[in-house]
Design a protein around this nucleic acid. Structure first.
Lengths: 159, 159
DNA sequence: TAATATAGTTAGCCACCCCTAACTTTTCAA
DNA sequence: TTGAAAAGTTAGGGGTGGCTAACTATATTA
C-alpha cells in the first residue's frame, strides 16, 4: 500500500499547509527556510511536517527539493486560509481588535471551527456589509457602543 | 523551592480546571471519576492532570481525596468558563448553530481568545441584546438573512 | 573548480497528553 | 468485620510536535 491516503490533519499540519499555500500564492516557490520563518519554528520541524504532509498526499516533497501543494493539499489549505481570513475580519474589522491580535487569535481558532459555524460566520460578515449599503452599518453602531462601554472596566473580567 | 508556582496552563489543563469548576459549582464535591466522565477521558489521565494542576497550585489534591480549586484555580476556571459561555451564546444563540455544535466549538476555541477579543465579544453580545430592546433585534435580522441565504450552497466552500 | 556559506536532513532528546493493565485504597453491605 | 465492588493510582507505552547538534547537499563566488 502506498502512503496513508487521507486521515484528518492536526492543527499543526493545517498550519503548515496554510503557510505553504501563502508562500506559493505569491508566485514564489516554497522553501523549507521560508516555511520555518513564517511559522517561527526550526528547519528540522519543517522537515518533519513535510514528511507527514507528504505521507498524507498533501504536498509534493523530495529531500532538498522545492515544495508544492497537491490538489488535495490546495483544497484544504484554501479552506483553512478562508477560515483564517473570516475570523481575522470578524475579530479585527468588525469587533475592532488590533490586526496582530486578530491575526493571532484567528490562527489559533481557525482549526476549531466546523463547516456549520464557518458558514454562519461567513454569512454574518456578508450580512454586516449589507447593512452598510442600507445605511444601518452595524459595525459603526457596535464601534460606538464599544467606545462608550469601554474604559469603564466593564469587560475586564474574562481576560 | 516549593512546586512551580505559576506557569501558564495548557488548553488541556484549562479544560480540567473548567470541568472541576462546573462540578463543584453544583455543590457536589469533584471526584476523579466525575471529572473523567465529564471530560471523556480515563481516570488515569485525570490523576495526571490533577498532579499537574496541584503542582501549579490550582487545586487542592491528595491521592484518594476529594478535589477542590484553590483561589487561583477558581479565578482561572471562572475566566475559562466565562469565555466558553460567551462563545456558546455567540455560536448558538446568535449565529444559530445547534447547541451541541456551538458547545463543542466553544470548548475548543475558548483557549485561543485573549482578553482583548473576549472583552469585545462580550460587549458585542451586550450590544446585541440592547438592540432587542430598541426593537431592531439584530439577531432576528441576521436569522432572516441566514434563512434566505442558506440552502443555496452559498456558504459551503469553507467546511 | 575548489572552498565556503547556506539550506536542508537526521538523530536523539524532551514535553504534553492520552491510553490500557495491573495494583492499591476506600467504601459498603452481607 | 470482612470481603467484594468501586474508585483511584502507578507503570509503561504511543502519538504528536517542538528543539539542538551534527551531518549532508546545494549554491555561490573568489
Amino acid at each position: 500500500m502506498a502512503a496513508s491516503v487521507a486521515g484528518k490533519l492536526s492543527a499543526s499540519l493545517e498550519d503548515y499547509l496554510e503557510a505553504i499555500y501563502n508562500l506559493t500564492e505569491g508566485q514564489e516557490v516554497a522553501r523549507s527556510k521560508d516555511i520555518a520563518e513564517a511559522m517561527k519554528v526550526s528547519c528540522a520541524s519543517v522537515t518533519g511536517a513535510l514528511k507527514a504532509l507528504s505521507e498524507k498526499s498533501m504536498v509534493h516533497y523530495k529531500p532538498y527539493g522545492y515544495v508544492t501543494l497537491t490538489v488535495k493539499g490546495q483544497q484544504i489549505a484554501r479552506r483553512v486560509a478562508g477560515r483564517h481570513e473570516i475570523l481575522t475580519r470578524f475579530f479585527g474589522g468588525f469587533l475592532g481588535a488590533e490586526t496582530a491580535t486578530a491575526q493571532h487569535a484567528a490562527c489559533r481558532a481557525e482549526h476549531t471551527l466546523g463547516p456549520e459555524i464557518t458558514a454562519r460566520l461567513m454569512a454574518f460578515m456578508e450580512f454586516v456589509s449589507k447593512t452598510q449599503d442600507d445605511g444601518q452599518d452595524i459595525t459603526k453602531q457596535f464601534q460606538h457602543y464599544w467606545k462608550i462601554a469601554d474604559g469603564k472596566d466593564k469587560h475586564k473580567n474574562l481576560g
